[in-house]
Design a binder for these strands. Sequence first.
DNA 1: CAAATTTGTTAGATTGTTCTAACTTATTAC
DNA 2: GTAATAAGTTAGAACAATCTAACAAATTTG
Lengths: 219, 219
Amino acid sequence: MASSTEENYLKALYNLSNGQGEVNISDLANGLKVSMPTANSMVKSLQKSDWVIYEKYKPVILTPKGQKEAALIVRKHRLTEMFLVKKMGFGWEEVHEVAEQIEHIHSPKFFDRMDEMLGYPTIDPHGSPIPDNQGRMKEFSYTPLSACKPGQEVQLTALTNSSAEFLEFLNSRKLSLGVHLKVISREAYDQSIVVSYPDHPIETLSEKASERLLVRILE
Amino acid sequence: MASSTEENYLKALYNLSNGQGEVNISDLANGLKVSMPTANSMVKSLQKSDWVIYEKYKPVILTPKGQKEAALIVRKHRLTEMFLVKKMGFGWEEVHEVAEQIEHIHSPKFFDRMDEMLGYPTIDPHGSPIPDNQGRMKEFSYTPLSACKPGQEVQLTALTNSSAEFLEFLNSRKLSLGVHLKVISREAYDQSIVVSYPDHPIETLSEKASERLLVRILE
DNA sequence: CAAATTTGTTAGATTGTTCTAACTTATTAC
DNA sequence: GTAATAAGTTAGAACAATCTAACAAATTTG
Ligand SMILES: [Mn+2]
Ligand SMILES: [Mn+2]
Ligand SMILES: [Mn+2]
Ligand SMILES: [Mn+2]
């Protein structure tokens, strides 16, 4: 059974995996805020338990076993976040840290009951998909708001970044998932985007912010 | 800040403390299922952080700081058990193991919200008192059923042992906290006690079981 | 391509938590 | 009150997870 530390490494590898499912040691070390030798030695030990495939100087690859294990931890993390928001009155900006701890609890029943109480949700409070209990995750393809054209009407559906600072920024603009936005215009100068939505007839969003907002185009 | 391991030691010391608040190394080792040298070395390190007072060959004593820390972990444990039973549909025999993990979560809000959702309970699902948020715990003085006389009417109020096996035994007899019992008789031979309660006109409880049932005498 | 830079590895140390074996002190039994 | 037993300690080792310093390989740059 994976330790909490190992679980955090598996999750980081899962989240950092690109199209090829490869992760560089330096990206892994960076993501977990450990030194490269630490990441290197952990990867070697994950290999011994068949969680990853690894060869010197090559990027790390999760095995199918490692992928499933990682996805199930992501599942526990996201179910927890949803539970905290929907059932315990947490704000979406407050849940990540706690979920980072609760995801390591070993108790199938605890998470199954959360799932049931939540009505089997498929996304977490930040719009990220929740893997099913077999570790399968549906991939959604949303459009960043930064890629939208003036005149388009869209619905805010997910975020590419869920840092507390960004979530608090969204709170301050009353932007939450599900909100309908109309793209008014776009500044050629700095790529900022002007949108309109209920109670906010004109709101300007920087390129940085609009890249992080994923939307579903309406009609 | 105490590690999960240290927290478990503090909690064990708290629960094993007798009238004098003293705990032998061997009782501590036994309680935590570690070797005596392990308990010994941990106690030395707890002493460095001022959680305990310790001198070679003397029993361990929690400092006021250690007592408060321990009581707050017991609080998290018991609030969690109550939450799992009252809000998440767990049986009272299923909660201890999970609570043993969840008690180490660092998030005041998480436990404050549980407390609030539960209406600020003072006892856990097994009748044990929940320390308040300052680490103060009310001591109740209940009578073991084994000390009751025939003819007495009592209410089942708490347990001195909450092992899953004992709780399942109680489930099988439909004995839960709050049940009103009438003591019918007592066997001089083996100290077993015959009781009567709703839907169970005659039920015999061994001395072992009746010692573990704490009751409040009615009238 | 050779030099500079980035990325990755090895070696060696540290801290936390655990163990067994051997020894010492304290307590109990006779 | 000695002898046997129980309780407690020390020494030494192991494993997990981390670090820094030094070195090596791979990649990028001019
Ligand atoms: Mn999160
Ligand atoms: Mn985590
Ligand atoms: Mn318990
Ligand atoms: Mn615990």
